[in-house]
Amino acid sequence: MVNLVKDFWNGVWDENTIFKLQIGMCPTLAVSTSAQNGLAMGLATTFVLVCSSALVSLVRKLVPNEVRIPVYVVIIATFVTVVDLFLKAAFPDIHAVLGIFIPLIVVNCVILARAEAFAGKMPVHRSAADALGFGIGFMIALVTLGSIREILGMGTWFGMRVMPAGYVPWSIMVLPPGAFITLGFVVAAVNLISRRSTATSRSS
C-alpha cells in the first residue's frame, strides 16, 4: 500500500512531467487556452496513460524484448483512437477545440516513457498507480496553466466571470505567445518552491 502511494505521488509531484521533466510540452502549450480545455486534455491523456500502462504490464511477459516498442505504440494508438471516437460522438465541441492534439496523444512522450520505464517491468496494480499519478500530475499542470491564461486573458474561470467588471483582458495570454511566457514563469515558480523546500529540509 505504501508502495502504491509512493508510485502515485512520484508522478504527481516528484517527477511531474511538465513542471519537472519538461516532456509532453506540445499539448500543454496548445490546449491550455482555458481551464476547461486543459481539464479535457488532462482527462483524455490520463485515460490513455492508465489503460495503456495496465495493458503493457499485463502482456509484459508475452512480448519479446526486440519488438516491445512497436507493440507499446500500437497499444497506445488503440486507446487514443478510442478516446478520439468517444469525444467525437459525446462531446463534439471539445473534440473540435482540441483538434489534432487528440490523435497526437500517441506521441506524448510521457506515455511511452512510463510504458518503457515502469509498466514493462512492474505488476499491474503498481503500473496503474504510477500511470494514474503521472496522468493526474499532467492534468494539474494543464489546469493550472489553463486557469492562469483564462483568468488573465478572458477574465473568466471555467466560463464563470471572476475578474471585476472594469478588467481589461490581456488578450495576449490566450494567444500563442502567452502559452510560452506563462509556462516559463510557472516552471520558474516550481523551481523556486522545490529549491526552497530542499534547502529547509537540509537545514532542519
Binding site: P177, F180, I181, G184, F185, V187, A188, N191
Partner: peptide, 21 residues
Amino acid sequence: KSLQGAGIALITAGLMSIAFS
C-alpha cells in the same frame, strides 16, 4: 537561478512568438 534552463528558454520562445505573430 530559478529561471535557468527551461524557464528562460520558454520566455524567449514567447518573445519570438510575439515577433512571429
